[in-house]
Structures are given as structure tokens and as C-alpha cells.
Design a binder for these strands. Structure first.
Lengths: 225, 225
DNA sequence: CGAACTGTTGCATTGACTGCACTATTTTAT
DNA sequence: ATAAAATAGTGCAGTCAATGCAACAGTTCG
């Protein structure tokens, strides 16, 4: 592609924190403890995300311009880029931040489980943290299935997280090829996550369940085919 | 604005492979069966690729403009885009095309091996097919290690191939979750490929060997960590 | 209430990428 | 060998994503 990316990253645990994984569901109503400013910010952000998904669902990715999205969301294009690193990010709802948090939870999991399972738990949590807005989810499903480009990007955006996780895992794995093995574990972990994503998209199953099913199939001995 | 006619094509001396996954080494001399036109085309393409890699190695990805690359390669920017889909593609040397071919070889391998091993063979072959131009390889190594963005992209470019392979594998796998299992096999296959890529980049080991090592580690039971 | 913040915006600019029309050269058919 | 069909290279005009900067307005906090 083109333009300037720098990969914003994505998800993590859950609500509350200012540094937010994906677009959070904020209702016009609630949110009294967040301050007017923060509330408004989230509203506009959500508005943009919505607009982006809707428009892309209508016209496809390329034909939709940032200006169109901004207009529908009722903001200026400049504001648009104050919230989203790229046009893609807005469609996917990816807010930059989080790799650090994810790495932290991996570290925590490592106290309890081995590398592979620790990573699996973390990734599952991340998936579970992705909001399942009934409206948007269906739209997104359509969009993603028709716009393979977004898959690319979404996986691309994960790269920052990946390297962070590799670091953590490398520490935890001792022996000769610690780093190399860490890389493999992470790569395979993300491969399964991506599979779950696709599975979820095509079946409509929710992400965590899809993930579980994928793990199940994988462990069942896909090895031996 | 940007036209230096020095025909600055420094083609290097290497055997040429007709079905080219990446930029092929074409020699000024031998190529009698390719026709003048095709020969020149490849020369300019190679020149651009070279220029791109060199410049990015010097300045990093973002600061290098297409115009700079084109100028150094002695072509117009318009010509640049006649050859490469994007700036990234030029740096990576990715010529669009052959997902069909790869799919075909997978089909062939499936006559002999099971899904997993068939895919492994195919992927290994693809890796082996990537030209190991001594000069460029080192540069590319540098570039890739300093420019994580390119990893993203390179894996992104593979997405077309991926879905093609999934199709083929799905046919070959029968049973309930054929498609899903195919997806997983492919995703994991590519995960290992990416690992090999990283391995090769950091150690300098050639790609096929790196790939073998990765497979070895993986099969050795990374599962049980 | 006043000062420090911070989100929104307009403006100007860069740079990736495309469509179109044209030239020059190679290829092919006659 | 020559005319006709192809096609790589090029210039030009234009679209659109993305960024820096400066000004403004509503929010928060002392």
C-alpha cells in the first residue's frame, strides 16, 4: 500500500482504562465518571468508527474517502486523523496503545502456565475484549469478508504486539534457541488467532468460541494430516 | 523533473528463472530467448528494485520517495508505477503474479503427500526460489531488520496466495470442518515461514536452511512447552 | 474567576498513486 | 523489407491519504 503507516495496535483486557483497545461501547447516556471531555471524545470516536464501517459496507473500502467518513461523523478530516492513525484503523476500530499491557498480562500468565498456554490465554482474552456490538459486528463481518485487504492490515497492526510478546517469551524460555522458539510459538499463536478471526467472520460465531474451536481442531492432531 | 538518461542499469550476472516469484537476475548477455523487449523490461525492473533497496538501506523506508528511487534507476516515476503496485513492493521485489503457480504445485504435491507435508514442500520451494543475490541479500537483511513495517507488508502480500492455497487444501481434505482445518494448516504453515524469514534475517542463514531448522524445532515438540 | 489543558479545526504541504494521451521501439504478419 | 499491431516509457493533470502548525473554544482545576 502506500501512505504512511505506523501500525496502531489494538486490543487488551477491558473497559475502564483511558488507553483503550478498540472502540468502546459508550452509550449516550451512561459514563458519568468519565468527565465531559472524555465522554465527548469517545462519542466522536465511535461516531467515526460507525460511519467508517457503514460507508465501507455500502461502497467498499477504496471508494470511501476520509472526507466522507468525517462528514458523516460530523467532524473535520483533521479531527479524523487526530483519532485514527490511518483510514484502515478507523474501519477496524483500532486505537493505538496497548502492546505494553498485553505484554504485562503475558508475564502474569507465565507465572502459572507454560509459554504456549500462557500465550493462548492472553490471546483469548484479547479476543474476548473485542466489543461485540450487535449492530457493528454484523456490518464488520460483511466488510471483512468482502475486503481481504483489511485482513492484511489487521494482522499487520499486530506486529508491534508480536515483537513485544516475543521479548517476554524469550526471557521465559531458557536453552539454546530460546528466541527462535519464542518466535515460533508467537507466530503459531497468532496464526491460530487469525484462523479464529476468519472462522468467526464466516460463521458468525463469537470470537472466543471460534478461538476455542480452532484450538480444539489444532490440538486434535492437525499435525498428522 | 526526473529524467536522467544514463540507462543506469546494473544487471548482475545470474541465471534466470522464467516463473519469477521475485525479481529475477537477468544478464545483459544471455537471454536470447526472451526478446529484446522483455530483457529490457527486466533490466529496468531490476534497476528499480536495486535502487529501492539501496536507498532504503541508506535512509530508512519513509524518507525515501518514489521519485528518488525512480531517479536513481533512471526512469520516470510513472514508469515506476507501471512496474510496481506500491513503493513497498519495489523494496521487497514482489512482482505480482504467481499465486496460481504456487497453487498448482501444491496440487501436485498433494498427489504424493498429506496436506501438511505437501504445503511444507511447496513453501520450502518458494523460499528456495527467492534469489540469493549476494549483494542484495545483505542489504535486504539490513533493511528488513531495521524496518519492521516491511515484514508486515511482506506478509500482507502473501494473502492472495494464502486464500488460493486454502481453496486447494479444502478440496483435498474431506470431513466436517474441511475448510476450517485447511485454513489452520495454511495459517500455521505461513507462520513457520515467517519465522524462518526472521531467523534468516537475524542469523544470515539462507532461507531454505532456516526453514528446515524452524520445522525441526517446531516438530521437536514446541507444543509441550 | 482565571490559568492550564486539550480537543477541534482550517490551511498549507508533501507524497503515493491513477487515468489519459502520446511517442518510440520492438514484434509480427504480410 | 515494410506496414501494422503491441507495448514499454513518459509527461501531465488530478485525487486522496497523511502531517505540521497555529488559532480557537470548551473543560478542568486551583
Amino acid at each position: 500500500m502506500c501512505r504512511t503507516y505506523d501500525g496502531g495496535v489494538n486490543a487488551s483486557s477491558y473497559p475502564s482504562v483511558p488507553p483503550d483497545p478498540l472502540v468502546e461501547e459508550s452509550d449516550d447516556a451512561g459514563d458519568d465518571r468519565l468527565g465531559l471531555r472524555e465522554t465527548k471524545k469517545r462519542q466522536t470516536r465511535l461516531a467515526m468508527h460507525r460511519a467508517a464501517v457503514e460507508l465501507v459496507a455500502e461502497h467498499g473500502f477504496t471508494p470511501v474517502t476520509v472526507e466522507m467518513i468525517a462528514r458523516r461523523a460530523g467532524v473535520s478530516t483533521r479531527t479524523f486523523f487526530n483519532h485514527w492513525v490511518t483510514k484502515d484503523a478507523a474501519v477496524l476500530g483500532v486505537v493505538p496503545g496497548e502492546s505494553r499491557e498485553i505484554a504485562a498480562s503475558l508475564r502474569a500468565e507465565l507465572e502459572v502456565h507454560g509459554p504456549r498456554d500462557a500465550l493462548r490465554h492472553v490471546l483469548r482474552d484479547v479476543l474476548a475484549g473485542i466489543p461485540a456490538d450487535p449492530e457493528l459486528r454484523d456490518l464488520k463481518k460483511q466488510v471483512m469478508s468482502k475486503e481481504p485487504r483489511l485482513h492484511t492490515i489487521s494482522s499487520g497492526n499486530l506486529i508491534e504486539v508480536q515483537s513485544e510478546l516475543v521479548e517476554v517469551l524469550t526471557e521465559a524460555m531458557d536453552g539454546e534457541d530460546a528466541r527462535m522458539r519464542a518466535v515460533i510459538v508467537v507466530q503459531v499463536g497468532f496464526a491460530l488467532t487469525r484462523s479464529a478471526f476468519g472462522f468467526s467472520m464466516s460463521t458468525g460465531m463469537d470470537l472466543p468460541s471460534a478461538y476455542d474451536r480452532v484450538i480444539e481442531l489444532y490440538d486434535a492432531g492437525l499435525q498428522d494430516d
